[in-house]
Protein backbone atom coordinates (compact mmCIF):
# COMPACT_ATOMS: atom_id res chain seq x y z
CA UNK A 1 0.00 0.00 0.00
CA UNK A 2 1.17 3.55 -0.69
CA UNK A 3 2.39 5.75 2.10
CA UNK A 4 0.49 8.78 3.34
CA UNK A 5 2.72 11.39 4.95
CA UNK A 6 1.33 13.12 8.03
CA UNK A 7 3.25 16.12 9.34
CA UNK A 8 3.18 15.89 13.13
CA UNK A 9 1.80 18.95 14.91
CA UNK A 10 3.76 19.39 18.12
CA UNK A 11 5.36 21.85 20.49
CA UNK A 12 8.90 20.76 21.43
CA UNK A 13 7.93 17.13 21.02
CA UNK A 14 4.57 17.35 22.81
CA UNK A 15 2.20 15.97 20.17
CA UNK A 16 -0.96 18.01 19.59
CA UNK A 17 -4.38 16.46 19.02
CA UNK A 18 -4.74 17.36 15.30
CA UNK A 19 -1.90 14.89 14.63
CA UNK A 20 -4.12 11.98 15.72
CA UNK A 21 -6.98 13.29 13.61
CA UNK A 22 -4.72 13.42 10.55
CA UNK A 23 -3.41 9.91 11.21
CA UNK A 24 -7.00 8.68 11.44
CA UNK A 25 -7.76 10.25 8.06
CA UNK A 26 -4.48 8.95 6.62
CA UNK A 27 -5.55 5.36 7.33
CA UNK A 28 -8.43 5.82 4.87
CA UNK A 29 -6.02 6.77 2.12
CA UNK A 30 -3.11 4.38 2.62
CA UNK A 31 -0.39 3.53 5.08
CA UNK A 32 0.24 6.38 7.54
CA UNK A 33 3.82 7.59 7.85
CA UNK A 34 4.24 10.27 10.48
CA UNK A 35 6.88 12.93 9.91
CA UNK A 36 8.46 14.38 13.03
CA UNK A 37 10.49 17.53 12.47
CA UNK A 38 11.68 18.42 15.94
CA UNK A 39 14.24 17.64 18.64
CA UNK A 40 15.40 14.08 17.83
CA UNK A 41 15.82 13.40 21.54
CA UNK A 42 12.03 13.57 21.90
CA UNK A 43 11.37 10.87 19.30
CA UNK A 44 12.10 7.79 21.40
CA UNK A 45 11.24 6.60 24.90
CA UNK A 46 7.99 5.56 26.54
CA UNK A 47 6.76 9.15 26.42
CA UNK A 48 8.26 9.97 23.04
CA UNK A 49 6.63 11.00 19.81
CA UNK A 50 7.03 7.58 18.16
CA UNK A 51 5.13 5.82 20.94
CA UNK A 52 2.32 8.36 20.67
CA UNK A 53 1.79 8.25 16.91
CA UNK A 54 2.13 4.43 16.83
CA UNK A 55 -1.03 4.22 18.89
CA UNK A 56 -2.90 6.01 16.14
CA UNK A 57 -1.67 3.82 13.34
CA UNK A 58 1.65 5.25 12.19
CA UNK A 59 3.44 2.40 10.39
CA UNK A 60 6.54 4.51 9.91
CA UNK A 61 7.93 7.54 11.68
CA UNK A 62 10.39 9.73 9.81
CA UNK A 63 12.50 11.55 12.38
CA UNK A 64 14.18 14.73 11.21
CA UNK A 65 16.24 16.50 13.85
CA UNK A 66 15.48 20.20 13.65
CA UNK A 67 18.57 21.55 15.43
CA UNK A 68 19.86 23.16 12.22
CA UNK A 69 16.53 24.44 10.93
CA UNK A 70 14.30 25.39 13.84
CA UNK A 71 15.57 28.95 13.66
CA UNK A 72 14.00 29.52 10.23
CA UNK A 73 10.46 30.04 9.06
CA UNK A 74 8.52 27.53 6.91
CA UNK A 75 10.91 27.04 3.96
CA UNK A 76 13.17 24.34 5.51
CA UNK A 77 10.19 22.19 6.47
CA UNK A 78 8.93 22.29 2.90
CA UNK A 79 12.33 21.05 1.74
CA UNK A 80 12.24 18.23 4.30
CA UNK A 81 8.83 17.08 3.09
CA UNK A 82 9.95 17.33 -0.53
CA UNK A 83 12.86 14.99 0.16
CA UNK A 84 10.82 12.50 2.18
CA UNK A 85 8.14 12.53 -0.51
CA UNK A 86 10.74 11.72 -3.16
CA UNK A 87 11.98 8.77 -1.12
CA UNK A 88 8.47 7.47 -0.43
CA UNK A 89 7.58 7.77 -4.10
CA UNK A 90 10.63 5.66 -4.94
CA UNK A 91 9.70 3.01 -2.38
CA UNK A 92 6.09 1.86 -2.50
CA UNK A 93 4.38 5.02 -3.74
CA UNK A 94 2.86 8.05 -2.04
CA UNK A 95 -0.92 8.49 -1.86
CA UNK A 96 -1.13 11.90 -0.18
CA UNK A 97 0.52 14.40 2.13
CA UNK A 98 -1.58 15.62 5.06
CA UNK A 99 -0.56 18.74 6.94
CA UNK A 100 -2.28 20.45 9.89
CA UNK A 101 -4.17 23.50 8.62
CA UNK A 102 -2.39 25.99 10.81
CA UNK A 103 -0.92 29.21 9.45
CA UNK A 104 2.48 27.53 9.26
CA UNK A 105 1.07 24.27 7.91
CA UNK A 106 -0.69 26.01 5.05
CA UNK A 107 2.47 27.87 4.09
CA UNK A 108 4.51 24.65 4.17
CA UNK A 109 1.90 23.05 1.90
CA UNK A 110 2.03 26.07 -0.42
CA UNK A 111 5.78 25.86 -0.98
CA UNK A 112 5.68 22.09 -1.24
CA UNK A 113 3.00 22.25 -3.95
CA UNK A 114 5.25 24.36 -6.16
CA UNK A 115 8.31 22.19 -5.41
CA UNK A 116 6.73 18.82 -6.22
CA UNK A 117 4.29 20.17 -8.84
CA UNK A 118 1.22 18.94 -7.01
CA UNK A 119 -2.18 20.42 -6.34
CA UNK A 120 -2.99 21.82 -2.90
CA UNK A 121 -6.29 21.83 -1.05
CA UNK A 122 -6.41 23.90 2.12
CA UNK A 123 -8.65 23.88 5.19
CA UNK A 124 -10.28 20.52 4.56
CA UNK A 125 -12.84 19.52 7.18
CA UNK A 126 -13.09 15.96 5.85
CA UNK A 127 -11.27 13.70 3.40
CA UNK A 128 -12.77 10.49 2.04
CA UNK A 129 -10.96 7.26 1.13
CA UNK A 130 -10.84 8.32 -2.51
CA UNK A 131 -9.28 11.65 -1.66
CA UNK A 132 -12.32 13.88 -1.94
CA UNK A 133 -11.84 16.80 0.44
CA UNK A 134 -14.64 18.89 1.93
CA UNK A 135 -14.17 22.60 2.62
CA UNK A 136 -16.51 24.94 4.45
CA UNK A 137 -16.41 28.26 2.58
CA UNK A 138 -17.96 31.74 2.38
CA UNK A 139 -18.26 32.13 6.12
CA UNK A 140 -19.64 28.60 6.41
CA UNK A 141 -22.52 29.34 4.05
CA UNK A 142 -21.32 26.80 1.47
CA UNK A 143 -19.82 23.35 1.51
CA UNK A 144 -17.44 22.52 -1.29
CA UNK A 145 -16.01 19.16 -2.29
CA UNK A 146 -12.91 18.83 -4.42
CA UNK A 147 -9.94 16.77 -5.37
CA UNK A 148 -6.33 17.19 -6.31
CA UNK A 149 -5.86 16.15 -9.93
CA UNK A 150 -2.14 16.63 -10.41
CA UNK A 151 0.81 15.04 -8.62
CA UNK A 152 0.58 13.88 -5.01
CA UNK A 153 -2.43 15.41 -3.27
CA UNK A 154 -1.34 17.87 -0.59
CA UNK A 155 -4.19 18.53 1.79
CA UNK A 156 -4.15 20.75 4.85
CA UNK A 157 -6.72 19.56 7.37
CA UNK A 158 -8.47 21.64 10.02
CA UNK A 159 -8.64 20.62 13.68
CA UNK A 160 -11.66 18.45 14.64
CA UNK A 161 -12.02 17.00 11.14
CA UNK A 162 -12.06 13.43 12.42
CA UNK A 163 -12.54 11.67 15.74
CA UNK A 164 -9.10 10.20 16.52
CA UNK A 165 -9.23 6.39 16.33
CA UNK A 166 -6.64 4.35 18.13
CA UNK A 167 -5.08 1.49 16.20
CA UNK A 168 -1.66 -0.04 16.61
CA UNK A 169 0.88 0.77 13.91
CA UNK A 170 4.39 -0.63 13.52
CA UNK A 171 5.98 2.75 14.19
CA UNK A 172 9.21 1.84 12.39
CA UNK A 173 11.63 4.70 12.90
CA UNK A 174 13.42 6.10 9.86
CA UNK A 175 16.05 8.62 10.82
CA UNK A 176 16.05 10.99 7.91
CA UNK A 177 18.93 13.33 7.16
CA UNK A 178 17.52 16.16 5.09
CA UNK A 179 19.69 18.58 3.15
CA UNK A 180 18.55 22.15 3.62
CA UNK A 181 19.54 24.81 1.09
CA UNK A 182 20.94 28.16 2.15
CA UNK A 183 18.08 29.83 0.34
CA UNK A 184 15.65 28.22 2.81
CA UNK A 185 17.46 29.86 5.71
CA UNK A 186 16.73 33.48 4.87
CA UNK A 187 13.74 34.18 7.08
CA UNK A 188 15.01 33.90 10.62
CA UNK A 189 13.00 33.28 13.75
CA UNK A 190 14.80 35.83 15.89
CA UNK A 191 12.73 35.27 19.01
CA UNK A 192 9.85 33.06 20.05
CA UNK A 193 7.52 33.51 22.97
CA UNK A 194 5.41 30.41 23.60
CA UNK A 195 1.75 31.15 24.20
CA UNK A 196 0.93 31.16 27.88
CA UNK A 197 -1.23 28.30 29.04
CA UNK A 198 -4.68 29.56 30.03
CA UNK A 199 -5.59 26.53 32.10
CA UNK A 200 -8.64 26.19 29.86
CA UNK A 201 -9.14 23.91 26.85
CA UNK A 202 -7.47 24.89 23.57
CA UNK A 203 -9.84 27.19 21.65
CA UNK A 204 -9.82 25.21 18.40
CA UNK A 205 -10.17 21.86 20.18
CA UNK A 206 -12.72 22.69 22.88
CA UNK A 207 -16.14 21.02 22.99
CA UNK A 208 -17.63 24.25 24.34
CA UNK A 209 -16.60 27.83 23.58
CA UNK A 210 -17.94 30.85 25.46
CA UNK A 211 -17.17 34.15 23.72
CA UNK A 212 -17.50 37.80 24.52
CA UNK A 213 -17.69 40.88 22.31
CA UNK A 214 -17.97 44.63 22.52
CA UNK A 215 -21.07 44.16 24.68
CA UNK A 216 -18.88 43.05 27.58
CA UNK A 217 -17.71 46.64 27.80
CA UNK A 218 -14.27 45.26 28.58
CA UNK A 219 -15.35 43.19 31.57
CA UNK A 220 -14.77 39.55 30.59
CA UNK A 221 -15.32 38.19 34.11
CA UNK A 222 -18.90 37.01 33.50
CA UNK A 223 -17.79 35.34 30.26
CA UNK A 224 -14.84 33.61 31.90
CA UNK A 225 -16.87 32.49 34.90
CA UNK A 226 -19.50 30.89 32.64
CA UNK A 227 -16.74 29.27 30.59
CA UNK A 228 -15.20 27.76 33.72
CA UNK A 229 -18.55 26.51 34.98
CA UNK A 230 -19.03 24.72 31.65
CA UNK A 231 -15.39 23.61 31.27
CA UNK A 232 -15.18 25.71 28.12
CA UNK A 233 -12.58 27.69 26.20
CA UNK A 234 -12.92 31.49 26.05
CA UNK A 235 -13.22 33.31 22.73
CA UNK A 236 -13.61 36.93 21.65
CA UNK A 237 -14.83 39.02 18.73
CA UNK A 238 -12.42 41.27 16.86
CA UNK A 239 -14.03 44.30 18.47
CA UNK A 240 -13.03 42.93 21.88
CA UNK A 241 -9.51 42.18 20.63
CA UNK A 242 -9.10 45.55 18.90
CA UNK A 243 -10.17 47.24 22.14
CA UNK A 244 -7.27 45.51 23.85
CA UNK A 245 -9.54 43.50 26.17
CA UNK A 246 -8.36 40.10 24.99
CA UNK A 247 -5.22 38.92 23.17
CA UNK A 248 -5.49 38.19 19.45
CA UNK A 249 -5.05 34.46 20.08
CA UNK A 250 -8.61 34.44 21.51
CA UNK A 251 -10.20 35.94 18.38
CA UNK A 252 -12.84 33.88 16.62
CA UNK A 253 -13.63 34.67 13.00
CA UNK A 254 -12.26 35.21 9.55
CA UNK A 255 -8.95 36.62 10.72
CA UNK A 256 -8.87 34.70 13.97
CA UNK A 257 -9.57 31.08 14.79
CA UNK A 258 -12.25 28.90 13.25
CA UNK A 259 -14.07 26.87 15.86
CA UNK A 260 -16.66 24.19 15.42
CA UNK A 261 -17.54 23.07 18.94
CA UNK A 262 -20.59 21.19 20.23
CA UNK A 263 -21.73 24.42 21.87
CA UNK A 264 -20.87 28.06 21.12
CA UNK A 265 -22.16 30.77 23.45
CA UNK A 266 -21.88 34.31 22.02
CA UNK A 267 -22.24 37.11 24.54
CA UNK A 268 -22.49 40.76 23.56
CA UNK A 269 -21.55 39.82 19.99
CA UNK A 270 -23.66 41.19 17.13
CA UNK A 271 -22.91 38.38 14.66
CA UNK A 272 -21.07 40.12 11.79
CA UNK A 273 -20.32 37.93 8.76
CA UNK A 274 -16.62 37.89 9.62
CA UNK A 275 -17.38 36.59 13.11
CA UNK A 276 -19.80 34.00 11.73
CA UNK A 277 -17.00 32.78 9.46
CA UNK A 278 -15.29 31.45 12.56
CA UNK A 279 -18.21 29.83 14.38
CA UNK A 280 -21.14 29.21 12.06
CA UNK A 281 -20.53 25.46 11.82
CA UNK A 282 -20.83 24.97 15.60
CA UNK A 283 -23.36 22.25 16.51
CA UNK A 284 -25.43 24.27 18.95
CA UNK A 285 -25.34 28.06 19.11
CA UNK A 286 -26.56 30.17 22.01
CA UNK A 287 -26.47 33.96 22.29
CA UNK A 288 -27.03 36.53 24.98
CA UNK A 289 -27.53 40.00 23.56
CA UNK A 290 -29.53 42.97 24.76
CA UNK A 291 -30.64 43.87 21.23
CA UNK A 292 -33.35 41.54 19.96
CA UNK A 293 -32.56 42.68 16.40
CA UNK A 294 -28.93 41.53 16.60
CA UNK A 295 -28.14 39.31 13.58
CA UNK A 296 -26.58 36.68 15.84
CA UNK A 297 -30.14 35.64 16.77
CA UNK A 298 -30.63 34.40 13.18
CA UNK A 299 -28.15 31.62 13.93
CA UNK A 300 -29.09 30.55 17.40
CA UNK A 301 -30.73 27.43 18.74
CA UNK A 302 -31.44 29.37 21.89
CA UNK A 303 -31.17 33.06 22.63
CA UNK A 304 -31.68 35.36 25.58
CA UNK A 305 -32.50 39.00 24.99
CA UNK A 306 -30.95 40.60 28.02
CA UNK A 307 -27.92 42.17 29.66
CA UNK A 308 -25.02 39.75 29.80
CA UNK A 309 -23.82 41.34 33.02
CA UNK A 310 -26.88 40.05 34.84
CA UNK A 311 -27.82 36.97 32.79
CA UNK A 312 -24.39 35.32 32.78
CA UNK A 313 -23.58 35.53 36.52
CA UNK A 314 -27.07 34.25 37.41
CA UNK A 315 -26.82 31.38 34.93
CA UNK A 316 -23.30 30.55 36.12
CA UNK A 317 -24.51 30.34 39.68
CA UNK A 318 -27.32 27.96 38.70
CA UNK A 319 -24.97 25.80 36.64
CA UNK A 320 -22.44 25.54 39.44
CA UNK A 321 -25.25 24.57 41.82
CA UNK A 322 -26.58 21.89 39.49
CA UNK A 323 -23.13 20.45 39.01
CA UNK A 324 -22.98 20.36 42.81
Amino acid sequence: MSEVLVLIDHVDGAVRKPTYELLTIAKRLGEPSAVFIGPAARAGGADGVTEKVKQYGAEKVYVVDDAQIKGYLVAPKAEVLQQIAAQALGNGGLAAILIPSSAEGKEIGARLAIKIESGLITDAVDVTADGVATQSVFAGNFTLTGKVTKGTPIITVKPNSAAPEESAGAGAVVEFAATISDAAKKAQIVASQPRQATGRPELTEAAIVVSGGRGTGGNFEPVEALADALGAAVGASRAAVDSGWMPHSFQVGQTGKTVSPQLYVANGISGAIQHRAGMQTSKTIVAVNKDEEAPIFELVDFGVVGDLHTVLPAATEQIVKRKG
Partner: peptide, 25 residues
Amino acid sequence: GEIVKDEDGSGATALTEFLASKKFI
Protein backbone atom coordinates in the same frame (compact mmCIF):
# COMPACT_ATOMS: atom_id res chain seq x y z
CA GLY B 1 -34.28 28.75 17.58
CA GLU B 2 -36.15 29.74 20.68
CA ILE B 3 -35.57 33.29 21.84
CA VAL B 4 -36.62 34.45 25.29
CA LYS B 5 -36.62 37.90 26.87
CA ASP B 6 -34.92 38.19 30.21
CA GLU B 7 -37.27 39.48 32.89
CA ASP B 8 -36.24 39.44 36.53
CA GLY B 9 -33.76 36.62 36.06
CA SER B 10 -35.98 34.43 33.88
CA GLY B 11 -33.36 34.52 31.14
CA ALA B 12 -30.68 32.88 33.26
CA THR B 13 -33.05 30.12 34.34
CA ALA B 14 -34.23 29.47 30.79
CA LEU B 15 -30.62 29.41 29.60
CA THR B 16 -29.62 26.94 32.30
CA GLU B 17 -32.63 24.74 31.48
CA PHE B 18 -31.72 24.76 27.81
CA LEU B 19 -28.08 23.83 28.48
CA ALA B 20 -29.19 21.05 30.83
CA SER B 21 -31.72 19.72 28.29
CA LYS B 22 -28.89 19.44 25.77
CA LYS B 23 -26.72 17.71 28.39
CA PHE B 24 -24.09 20.43 28.49
CA ILE B 25 -24.39 20.52 32.26
